[in-house]
């Protein structure tokens, strides 16, 4: 088909990567923070849904999208802290508890969200980077939500914070070798709980992005597993915040490329296409792992490594 305009297609793909990838970025940064402390929280999927619902509800009730984002973060933080505290108890498995949290989170969100399916809440603002262009498509593609920039800033902050601050070092020490941290007088359980709460906060914000910006409304089918996908994404990114950004964009692009290809007339095998990020992550894991050795970059205390 000669009529395909490739430059527009590419631009649309980039825009799609940002639009679809932003919630991935927040949830994966949250999961990265959690896992750096040595815990894994699969419950971020449930937290994402709770964040989407509470963000939408508060934005509608207060007529302020930003208060919605804050509420979503706080709700997520509370659930994250809950995960953190309970998993600090002996013999509580963090993976299973995360799955129970998915059930509880979605249940709560669906129950309290019934009243907010019909009303329309205010939407988050975006920055028009394409104001210079005459082409409506370019303008639309370069209309990027503020949360994305906040996400990028957070990525850089986390990248720096984990390397260069005392806090970051403590978190990594707790995540890599809790015993040494304890010997130095830190309390691993407390540090982990804080990290999990922080991770929950970010996942909640990711949920608010879904309900308040893109696609921009609350309903029960809103999340299509972004929260669980983020767990794979963090491994793909090797627990590096900067890589999380690239990986989120890549996962976002893979979500956007299917519809974009169909729009130009290539429409077979969309199920397989949608599974590409999973296959890719698996391939990367397979190629980069060695027997009897943990994934490079993986926090040593992570239950994934035991």
């Amino acid at each position: 088909m000669a009529e395909i305009d490739y430059s527009v297609l590419l631009l649309a793909l980039l825009a799609g990567a940002i639009r679809v990838g932003t919630p991935f970025l927040f949830v994966s940064l949250g999961e990265c923070l959690t896992e750096k402390g040595g815990r894994i929280n699969l419950g971020l999927e449930g937290i994402l849904v709770v964040g989407a619902m509470s963000g939408y509800a508060v934005a509608y009730l207060t007529d302020s999208a930003w208060l919605g984002v804050l509420a979503a973060g706080c709700a997520g933080g509370a659930l994250g802290a809950f995960h953190g505290v309970i998993c600090s108890l002996p013999r509580v498995n963090d993976i299973a508890f995360g799955i129970a949290l998915i059930l509880l989170g979605t249940g709560l969100a669906f129950f309290f969200g019934k009243a907010f399916i019909q009303p329309q809440a205010p939407s988050l603002p975006s920055i028009e980077l394409g104001a210079w262009s005459d082409d409506a498509r370019v303008r639309s593609a370069l209309s990027v939500n503020v949360l994305f920039f906040i996400g990028v800033a957070l990525t850089l902050l986390m990248h720096w914070g984990l390397r260069a601050t005392r806090w970051g070092l403590v978190l990594r020490l707790v995540g890599d070798h809790a015993q040494s941290a304890r010997a130095l007088g830190y309390r691993p359980a407390l540090v982990r709980t804080l990290a999990t709460a922080g991770g929950g906060f970010l996942a909640g914000v990711g949920g608010a992005y879904l309900s308040l910006y893109y696609p921009g409304s609350w309903n029960e089918g809103l999340s299509s597993g972004q929260g669980l996908m983020a767990v794979a994404l963090v491994i793909f990114a090797r627990w590096q915040p900067l890589n999380c950004l690239w990986a989120a964009l890549l996962f976002g692009a893979s979500g956007a490329v299917g519809p974009a290809l169909q729009a130009v007339g290539i429409s077979s095998g969309y199920y397989l296409f949608a599974a590409m990020p999973y296959a890719l992550t698996l391939l990367v894991m397979y190629l980069s792992c060695r027997p009897n050795q943990t994934l490079s970059g993986a926090p040593g205390e992570l239950s994934l490594n035991r």
Binding site: L210, L222, S224, V264
Partner: peptide, 17 residues
């Protein structure tokens, strides 16, 4: 039947085309 993000992305792609 219900994939909100994909539906939004599909709508955007169609508009871009």
């Amino acid at each position: 039947w219900s994939l909100p993000v994909k539906e939004a992305e599909a709508a955007n792609s169609l508009i871009d085309q």
